[in-house]
């Protein structure tokens, strides 16, 4: 791989390390495994959804339904468990099947009707949010033994930090995502479609199947993120996770993935999620800053990264034309 393609990723890593160093410099307490553990736990649902978003964006698409699907899944699970007495595992299964099918249908519409992903998933966003409201507009608490066991699970790190079940799950999803992206044919198809759909088709890439699978994967991971979110809050609420899709898109772009598709790393998205977490933690430690500062900093970072990527594209184009001129 050409190093300039990976430059945004390296930049993200450097920024992440710098940001953490700044935090530790100001609040020495932040240098602890407790903070690290919380970083994973607090951002678990965001990270899981962001893995799905990474695949979608790598393929040159976008999925705006992520936040709504998380909200919908949370409400569905809460209602199934609290009102109908369904076992949490069964509720998880049902929720995941619905979320996956929802994504697959969006993928099919995008491919076969040749409608921009933006429009289709925008419709999906309203649809999923609407369905959540139809189920109930109230916040439903989940009280189930299995639930408290699951959310109580953790592995202790040296220094007293805890890797909780959901934090660990996020790390596992990232590892699986990296394997999928770089070591399977599906992964190479995703990059191929993001690089150039027409070429990919002429080269024999199964574009239809892959597109459907990409959005199904994003749906599945949004569903999983919904489950994690309900474990995290022990409740289901139809208004929860509004706008999370935008946070995941931010994490993906800050992680060095090109919004136009074809270039990027799943690992970058992990760093992108952690950067957002670090900023939030800093604000909590500071105590006087409004939590909206997170959004402001994330906004600035996004600008910086989009500018950086644009610059790299222009530079590499210039280099390419030079190379073309001199044989």
């Amino acid at each position: 791989m050409m190093s300039s393609r990976l430059l945004p990723f390296y930049a993200t890593v450097v920024i992440c390390v710098l940001a953490y160093a700044v935090c530790v410099f100001q609040f020495p307490n932040m240098l602890s495994t407790r903070v690290l553990g919380n970083l994973l736990t607090d951002n678990a649902f965001l990270g899981i959804a962001a893995v799905g978003m990474t695949f979608v964006i790598l393929s040159g698409g976008i999925d705006l339904s992520v936040g709504s699907v998380i909200g919908f899944t949370g409400v569905l699970i809460a209602v199934l468990i609290s009102w109908y007495g369904v076992h949490p595992l069964a509720a998880f299964f049902i929720a995941l099947v619905i979320a996956t099918a929802f994504g697959a249908v969006m993928g099919a519409v995008i491919h076969y009707l040749d409608v921009p992903a933006f429009i289709v998933t925008l419709a999906g966003m309203f649809l999923a949010r609407g369905m959540a409201f139809v189920i109930t507009t109230e916040s439903i608490p989940i009280k189930h033994e299995f639930y408290s066991t699951l959310s109580g699970l953790f592995v202790r790190m040296p220094g007293g930090g805890r890797i909780t079940f959901i934090g660990g799950l996020m790390v596992l999803v990232f590892v699986a995502g990296i394997m999928l992206a770089h070591f399977t044919r599906f992964g190479s198809y995703v990059y191929a479609i993001g690089g150039n759909k027409v070429s990919a088709e002429l080269m024999g890439v199964p574009v239809a199947r892959t597109t459907i699978a990409i959005y199904a994967l994003s749906g599945f991971l949004s569903g999983l993120a919904g489950i994690v979110f309900s474990l995290y809050t022990s409740a289901g609420y139809s208004l929860s996770a509004v706008g999370v899709e935008l946070d995941t898109i931010a994490a993906v772009v800050i992680g060095g993935t090109l919004l136009t598709g074809g270039v990027g790393l799943v690992a970058g998205t992990f760093v992108g999620v952690i950067i957002q977490g670090i900023i939030q933690t800093y604000i909590v430690f500071d105590g006087t800053l409004s939590s909206w500062w997170t959004k402001i900093v994330v906004g600035l970072l996004l600008f910086a990264f989009i500018a950086l990527q644009r610059l790299l594209v222009v530079l590499s184009a210039r280099k390419g034309s030079l190379r073309g001129a001199i044989p």
Binding site: R5, M179, G187, S188, A192, G195, M203, G204
Partner: peptide, 24 residues
Amino acid sequence: NLLPNLTVAENLYIGRQPKRFGLV
């Protein structure tokens, strides 16, 4: 009609990559 964002080897073998233990 190739994919500039993939490696040379991937371009040559996309869709028919050799597999081992289910992975490329």
